[in-house]
Simulated scan of single mutants.
Amino acid sequence: MRETQSMAKLTMTSSRWDELTALLRDEPRLRSEFPKVAEYLDMAAGLAGTGDDQADAQFDLRFVHYMTGGSAVSKNPYWDIVEPFVSEHDGRRVVNGGCAEGSARLAFAQMLLQATYAYAIPAPETVEWFASFCAGSPVVELGAGRGYWAAQLTRAGLIVDAYDSAPPDRAGNPSFPGAAGQADIWHPVRDLAAFRTRARSAGYVLFLCWPPGWGDSMSSEALALFEEAGGQQLIYIGEPKGGKTGNDAFFEALSSRWRLDSTDSNFVSWWTDADVAQGWVRI
């Protein structure tokens, strides 16, 4: 059953509308300058939508506008694309277009948006919750990907150092592949060699956003290093134990040596995922 949902219409200047019209009429240019947008439009035409043709058309327009406009049209394009398609479902805020089961079209868009921006969605309310938990403390993000979350947190006034094993602007990163028409990074992202040269004191909040799962030890190793350095606060965004993120050792460490202090009730997830935003403090 579809859930009732208000749909905010996209507004743009007449010059921006003319830019988009010209781009969409010039297929060779679209495929050259924005191949991921062209890929989406090719696929979306043959994929089932939510059942509301007007809503699906609005999503397509937002996708094209923000994906081709970059930071010139929005500082948080990921959120601006999905925000009108957020619904309450089973006590959670999820991007499903008002359809409990979502749609094949949204699922394809999800894959492209996660690779373009980040796996988790930085809703403004979540960014505010994050800043409140940190209470002015600096943040170190490990596994930062494109630094999209780091950019949003920096805009909220936080000091963020971002690191990744394969910064997308300098190394091949299969989770965040490069493509024309999209930013490689949104915030400076340094490699793990730079992280290892940091001072040993952990006077910062550790941020792990969708650390790899399936037995990968990244999350537990990062937490162990943080604990050894005296770390006291952690923000984890990902799925519960047994999901797509984190390994068993990470969750065992949390349950034995950490206390869940805060959960963001306004966190927004894709309907296909079970991720949450949690703030933990050392026992």
Rank of each mutant, 00 (worst) to 15 (best):
R31Y: 01
A274H: 12
R196D: 13
R257C: 08
G98Q: 03
Q5V: 09
D42C: 04
P122N: 02
R155L: 05
G69Y: 07
F85R: 07
A162R: 12
S137R: 14
D161H: 06
L106W: 09
P167D: 10
E101F: 05
E125N: 15
L24H: 07
L23P: 12
R92C: 02
D161P: 08
A171L: 03
V139Q: 04
A120L: 05
Q278E: 14
R92K: 15
W186P: 01
G143S: 06
Q58C: 12
E221C: 05
F63G: 00
Y117A: 00
T68Q: 04
R16K: 14
A100Y: 01
V140I: 14
L23R: 13
I185D: 02
R25L: 12
D275P: 13
A144H: 01
G136S: 07
A179R: 12
G102N: 09
V86T: 10
D264I: 08
L112I: 15
V205Q: 02
R2C: 01
A48V: 13
V268D: 00
M7S: 03
R282M: 03
V127E: 08
R198K: 09
V127S: 08
A199T: 06
A249Q: 11
F130M: 13
R190H: 05
S219C: 04
Q233C: 03
G246Y: 04
K75W: 02
F250S: 00
Q152Y: 09
G242H: 05
T50N: 01
P167W: 07
S74T: 05
T272W: 07
C134Q: 05
